[in-house]
Measured scan of single mutants.
Amino acid sequence: MQRVNMIMAESPGLITICLLGYLLSAECTVFLDHENANKILNRPKRYNSGKLEEFVQGNLERECMEEKCSFEEAREVFENTERTTEFWKQYVDGDQCESNPCLNGGSCKDDINSYECWCPFGFEGKNCELDVTCNIKNGRCEQFCKNSADNKVVCSCTEGYRLAENQKSCEPAVPFPCGRVSVSQTSKLTRAETVFPDVDYVNSTEAETILDNITQSTQSFNDFTRVVGGEDAKPGQFPWQVVLNGKVDAFCGGSIVNEKWIVTAAHCVETGVKITVVAGEHNIEETEHTEQKRNVIRIIPHHNYNAAINKYNHDIALLELDEPLVLNSYVTPICIADKEYTNIFLKFGSGYVSGWGRVFHKGRSALVLQYLRVPLVDRATCLRSTKFTIYNNMFCAGFHEGGRDSCQGDSGGPHVTEVEGTSFLTGIISWGEECAMKGKYGIYTKVSRYVNWIKEKTKLT
């Protein structure tokens, strides 16, 4: 034993070699072989497995989906700052455009905790909710729209109204504003409101030439003092309507412009014939205590009207009353817009006519005020429907199939267009061939041609 100890002390290297040989010859039971080890760690190889990531292109799944990435790591994937920024906006807080917040056709661009709407022409605001041009839906104005110097929408209202708090709607500024039905039992019968379409306001006024200088022999019209197929109006439903009495009662109609003036057809009036105007009328054979009678003290036909040349060209006249009318729910003026808007309103496509005229061709006159909704007829169809001249200051309205029309005794009465609950004068009943005849239409004086003249002559002093 002493000898062994001496050998170990003198030859430590020998001992180490012996131990190493023993270990190498022993069977290893701690580690699995290569094949079995792979069965336990069965993990798919990654895209760049075996390579240094710093030297390969980034992978979106590896960089940002398996674990949260930084902007720089995302930049490695896209290799483009702009594309990385677009991805980053949604990656950080989701897609803010998912709810489609942009209105009126706006395009949404996502941002971090926010979004941006790219608005089409005519709109602005956070969600493109603000109209900035009158060309689109009248700028959301209830009545009139004008573009300011910086191309912003400025709404306005006709006389007797003021802008509401929203700067879009119009509200009454006087007790009985024009064009409004205020009798409670008839307010439910107000005709369907007309909503502004998209309009090209630059070209809204037709490029028409008034044929002022045409000389033409007097034409022989049949029954051209021209509501057939209409309905009984309720008291106060058309408070701007008046009836004219002269040699015979209810020979023509008219509309209240203001307390002192009536507008009617020029062919209705004769110099030297006494005319009485009755406002607030409903049943011409009954006294309903809503009527107001006034005498006409002055007749002003349009300066281009000449019955000797043509009885229905420039067929418009103004009547001055001896005493002002007292405005109330049964006696209310009709609204008159400017030339541009009167023309736009007419193009809405349908209007209402009213009167006490004959209820059928050569038949009896109506006792109760009649009204009828009539569609506008395109000019080409209008011209083809008659052998008589249709001037540019006239328009056609009615039904091709016949059966409904204005008729004798309705002449001078109103053709009105309702705009968001307020009625505007767009025409004056003038003439036609018979009444409600198939293929024939009622012919009306186009008020847009005469609004400046009306307003100039009827100013209240």
Rank of each mutant, 00 (worst) to 15 (best):
C69F: 01
F399T: 11
I40G: 06
G402S: 15
G94E: 14
T461I: 09
N113D: 13
W118Y: 10
V199D: 14
S182K: 06
I256H: 00
K459G: 09
S220E: 11
E66K: 06
G272A: 10
L425K: 00
N80Y: 03
E82L: 04
L372D: 09
E54Y: 00
N135G: 13
L23W: 13
E288F: 06
S11M: 13
S184Q: 08
E165V: 12
Y91A: 05
H314I: 01
K457E: 09
E53R: 00
N151R: 10
D338C: 05
T81H: 12
N135Q: 14
T342K: 01
V326G: 05
V451Q: 04
Y47V: 05
Y441C: 03
S70C: 04
D150R: 09
A173M: 12
H34K: 12
P120S: 12
K188P: 15
D249T: 12
L130R: 11
D212L: 07
V243P: 01
H302T: 02
L372W: 15
Y305Q: 02
I334W: 00
I297Q: 07
E270W: 07
R226L: 07
Q185C: 07
I7Y: 11
R358E: 10
L189Q: 10
P177G: 03
P239S: 03
V195L: 14
L319Q: 00
I15L: 08
W261Y: 08
C141R: 00
T389Q: 15
S11V: 14
N138R: 09
R364M: 09
M6K: 14
G229K: 14
Y91V: 05
N147E: 14
R298V: 03
F55N: 14
N138V: 06
C382A: 03
I7V: 14
I17N: 02
S204Y: 15
P333I: 00
E208S: 14
D378W: 03
A149G: 08
V30P: 13
L383Y: 10
V447W: 00
Y91C: 04
Y441H: 05
A26Q: 02
V228L: 08
G349D: 14
F176K: 04
I309A: 12
W453M: 01
K234L: 10
F345V: 04
S220P: 14
E340I: 11
G246T: 08
N147W: 13
Y371A: 14
A366D: 14
R384V: 07
P235T: 07
N313L: 10
C382W: 03
G439T: 08
R358D: 09
G357I: 08
V183G: 11
Q408E: 14
I300W: 05
D200V: 12
D315T: 02
N304T: 06
E208P: 15
E270R: 10
C335E: 00
C252T: 01
V273A: 13
E165Y: 09
L460I: 08
K146I: 12
V174M: 07
